[in-house]
């Protein structure tokens, strides 16, 4: 298909907390394209989980339109194409890994038992749990639970998966493994939409970003463009013949040109000109705390 797998327009959700009404999501709009990895970023309380719940009809929005694969309703056919891993998932601990995947597989597919069993076997090996398939989930570690959780999102070979904080609480090995699974899944053509506050991981994985701040959308676009927006300036290394190099900085390219012209006039040679780029984490902090940059581009 060519259109977006998910299209959100003007999504708004308000909760009642005691007597107070809390506007968790304030009319956000974004699209998820097929085969892309989109990071859904924002601080705690930004409205990421609420948005995800609205996408899956686990909470009902007050306003807005959500289209799945071009259609306006989350029908059973649409759900068959979607996989979902919630934040801090608790699974049926009395089931073994294989039983757990069979349960979700049966719910989502009409596959014959033999075909489903083969798929379970393959998937458990892919997430590194082939050895634990007959062990009850109560005996799984946190990382193993997260991996079997990801396996349940993939059991029906969906076109679109939504992962809510899939790396939270994992050690570096676990985070790496989850990142690898996300990368492989995207490579196979599945669109991945994952929320995270672990920005270095998002920087490595995501083609696109959707960033929320207190329920408002503050950025939707490519990761590259977001990082470009957050350039921190230009550093210029100059040297007078026979002397040690000196580092000069300029806030933008125009100012950098002036520094270069001035250095040449004074007989210095230009050794290096480098645009200083922020990491996603630095860029995120800058955008999230800079009110002037608020609002979708």
């Amino acid at each position: 298909m060519s259109g977006p797998v998910l299209s959100v327009r003007g999504l708004r959700k308000t909760y009642r907390r005691g007597l107070k009404r809390v506007e968790a999501v304030k009319g956000i709009s974004f699209d998820i394209q097929p085969g892309t990895v989109t990071g859904f970023l924002g601080a705690n309380g930004a409205g990421k989980t609420t948005t995800i719940k609205c996408l899956l009809n686990l909470a009902f929005p007050d306003a807005g339109e959500i289209r799945y694969f071009g259609r306006p309703e989350l029908t059973s056919e649409a759900k068959q194409k979607i996989g979902f891993l919630p934040e801090r998932p608790y699974f049926y601990e009395y089931l073994t890994g294989a039983e757990f995947l069979r349960f979700y597989g049966e719910l989502s597919t009409g596959l014959k038992k033999r075909v489903l069993d083969e798929r379970i076997e393959k998937l458990l090996k892919r997430v590194g749990l082939g050895h634990a398939k007959d062990r009850q989930l109560r005996g799984y570690s946190k990382g193993m639970l997260q991996r079997v959780g990801i396996a349940q999102t993939l059991i029906h070979e969906p076109e679109f998966i939504i992962l809510d904080e899939p790396k939270t609480g994992l050690d570096p090995d676990g985070r790496y493994e989850v990142a690898e699974i996300i990368r492989e899944t995207a490579k196979s053509g599945t669109a991945v939409f994952f929320s995270s506050h672990l920005l270095p991981d998002a920087e490595l994985l995501c083609d696109r970003l959707v960033i929320l701040k207190l329920g408002d959308l503050i950025y939707e676009g490519t990761t590259e463009k977001f990082l470009d927006r957050a350039e921190s300036g230009v550093s210029i290394v100059v040297r007078r013949p026979g002397d040690e190099p000196e580092v000069r900085t300029a806030p933008d390219h125009a100012a950098a040109q002036a520094v270069i012209d001035e250095a040449r006039k004074s007989g210095r040679e230009i050794v290096e000109v480098r645009t200083q780029r922020l990491s996603l984490e630095e860029a995120f902090v800058r955008v999230a705390f800079d009110k002037k940059e608020g609002g979708a581009p």
Binding site: K53, L56, N57, L58, S76, E77, K79, Q80, I82, F84, L85, P86, R88, P89, Y90, F91, Y92, Y104, L107, S108, G149, Q152
Partner: peptide
């Protein structure tokens, strides 16, 4: 309470 309902209702049921 255990949020298992989230993964269930996200399925075609």
């Amino acid at each position: 309470e255990k949020q298992t309902i989230l993964t269930l209702l996200a399925r075609p049921i």
